[in-house]
Amino acid sequence: MSKTPVTSSRAPVPRIVWPIIALALVLGFNLLFTHGFCQIEVRDGRLYGSLIDIIDRAGPVMLVSIGMTLVIATAGIDLSVGAVMAIAGAVAAGLVAQPDYSVLSNFDVGGSFVIAAVAALLISAIAGAGNGTLVAICGVQPIVATLILMVAGRGVAQLLTSGQIITFENESFAYLGNGFLLALPVTVSIVLVVFIIVSLLTRKTALGLFVEAVGGNPVASRHAGLRSGAVKIAVYTVCGLLAGLAGLIAAADIKAADANNAGLYIELDAILAVVIGGTALTGGRFSLAGSIIGALLIQALTTTILSRGVPVEYTLVVKGAVVIAVCLLQAERFRSMFLHVVRRRT
């Protein structure tokens, strides 16, 4: 509790307001200027439209950013999530499809998706726990500890697939990425369930307070009797597990495990989503809902750019400009400077 931010005497605006405004602006812009963007129709009993695409496509980033939020709240960071996604996809696809060039063909699971998925998630959680152990017990800086797995993990995934793209024909696996539940993509339900569970665990039990305490002031929280090491290992494990789940969805989406590209640079999108959502990289207070909004904002931007036909060369510039705008809006000092200038003019 040592990190109470110094704010003005007015009641502070909740930080989550800013990303919500940005998301509303992006969607409003499309409503006015992009033909058919906000149209949702029913095809074969499923909802179909760009808005549905946004929540579907944002699924993996939302899952990863939930885990990333917890890690960042402990003043850590996890760069290895993309590599863990690749490993999870490779393990599950390799076990289900049993291609003869992959070492995974030595483990026969009888084509069972459930066993393959459990194995993939278990490995992802172990990878996350490894990160946590390096950080909490060995005292390695989080950025270094997870950088190791970011680099090596993709190598592991490539070894598992022998550098090939493993394609599979498995109905239940493909359902995870392409299926529909209650007329919505199944990813929406998965993200919702994960979000509710993590929110309940962090808001209705003391766990959330532990996480914030460890991030806010690790020394003080240890003196207060908190096992900060255990908390750190737990959040990195959750982050790995969720990255694994995202990896399964990404693989199911294209019915293939692409070890070279699955989850590539997703760590950057996830960190961005967390920052946009109002969680500070210095740790302490966090907002899961903010991260979800952040992930939706990033995907809404991407989908907007794709459907409006912005020339490829400008894509990243447009994205960057919007992100800078959101981050500036969040900065208290910038807002007061801005208001100051505006007031002078009028």
Binding site: G36, F37, S50, I165, I254, T302, S307, G309, V312
Partner: peptide
């Protein structure tokens, strides 16, 4: 009528095509 990068990958190719289909029908 539309041209975008799919970064040579399956996942991105699918995502871009989805957006094209929504925009152009």
């Amino acid at each position: 009528i539309k041209s975008q990068t799919g970064e040579f990958t399956r996942a991105k190719g699918k995502e871009v095509m989805e957006a094209f289909l929504k925009a152009e029908g």
